[in-house]
């Protein structure tokens, strides 16, 4: 799309784009270029010189047990987060959509947790499941279940998944609720006249009609699980135990800042870059679908 009317001159527009272009260049393109460049080198142990290794860092990465494990962890984690945040949200949205009055109130109440930072959510859930003082951990103990996410890998994964999904329920609820509200009432009534009961109507009519929203949320939640859950993991498990909750983004941080392994960290950044690219393409294809919908 283009404007028919344009203003003349080129000094002014260049001045106008300058701030964004300069900031992007300095804080975006240069670092991104650096990441790609550094991924081709290994610094010597004293950090004095760099040795060119070509794709060596990548070969090393994909031969590395821990890195491959991190891929699996990330896949598992993002699948679980997506499901855990979408299913309850859809359920609540369906319930709220059945109401004539009061749906808005529930929306206002459920919107809250979205505003809570993932890192803060991590602290809240850590507090509930803390092995020493956590209320939930304590009650589980009374029931005969010995909760210890510090040692148990499954429990650790479960906890970061729940803590990451919690705030997302609000987000998904908002989108599902709006989508449900936009389903034409006449369609539902027609189905009712055809004799379909509520859940039958839901699965055969409503769910297909809101599928664009569902696809959209799938992609968005995967992106969230990949890139925005660092705070949760850092506050609750720091990637442990035994790297059981080390997702890719956490590993970039751990190797680059804690481990000071610049070459490997840079190579990981490049791999993530490719992942982001793929997700973006997915998102754009989805956007296109939506336009036609």
């Amino acid at each position: 799309m283009e404007k028919r009317v344009t203003f003349k001159g080129w000094m002014l527009p260049l001045l106008l784009v300058a701030p964004q272009v300069v900031i992007s260049a300095v804080f975006f393109f240069y670092p991104a270029g650096q990441a790609i460049w550094q991924s081709l080198f290994i610094p010597d142990p004293f950090g004095l010189s760099m040795e060119y290794v070509g794709l060596g860092n990548f070969e090393y990465l994909f031969g590395n047990r821990y890195y491959l494990a991190s891929f699996v962890t990330t896949a598992l984690f993002s699948t679980l987060v997506t499901l855990t945040s979408m299913i309850p949200a859809l359920f609540l949205a369906v319930m709220a959509d059945r109401l004539i009055k009061g749906a808005g109130t529930y929306r206002t109440l459920l919107i809250w947790p979205y505003a809570v930072a993932p890192a803060v959510a991590g602290v809240l859930w850590l507090f509930m499941f803390n092995t020493r003082v956590g209320v939930v951990a304590w009650y589980l103990g009374r029931l005969g279940y010995d909760w210890n996410h510090v040692l148990n890998e499954t429990e650790a994964m479960g906890l970061v998944v729940v803590a990451s999904s919690w705030g997302r329920i609000s987000y998904n609820f908002l989108f599902f609720f709006a989508a449900l509200q936009a389903v034409p009432k006449s369609v539902i009534e027609a189905a009712a006249i055809d004799g379909a009961h509520f859940w039958r109507r839901f699965f055969t009519i409503v769910l297909p009609l809101i599928s664009p929203t569902t696809f959209f949320l799938l992609v968005v939640n995967v992106v969230y699980a990949f890139f925005e859950t660092f705070g949760v993991i850092h506050t609750i498990t720091s990637g442990g135990p035994q790297q059981a909750t080390t997702i890719l983004v956490y590993k970039v941080y751990a190797d680059g800042f804690v481990g000071q392994d610049l070459g490997s960290s840079a190579a990981q950044s490049v791999v993530l870059l490719v992942v982001v690219g793929l997700l973006t393409v997915l998102q754009f294809r989805f956007v296109e679908r939506r336009v036609h919908y």
Binding site: V26, F27, F28, A32, Q38, F227, V249, A266, S269
Partner: peptide
């Protein structure tokens, strides 16, 4: 500008930190 849409800061932390 469009390209910058694609990269969250998490992905390029080390070099950005250096800058």
């Amino acid at each position: 500008i469009f390209l910058t849409l694609m990269l969250p800061v998490e992905v390029r932390i080390v070099p950005t930190y250096e800058v």
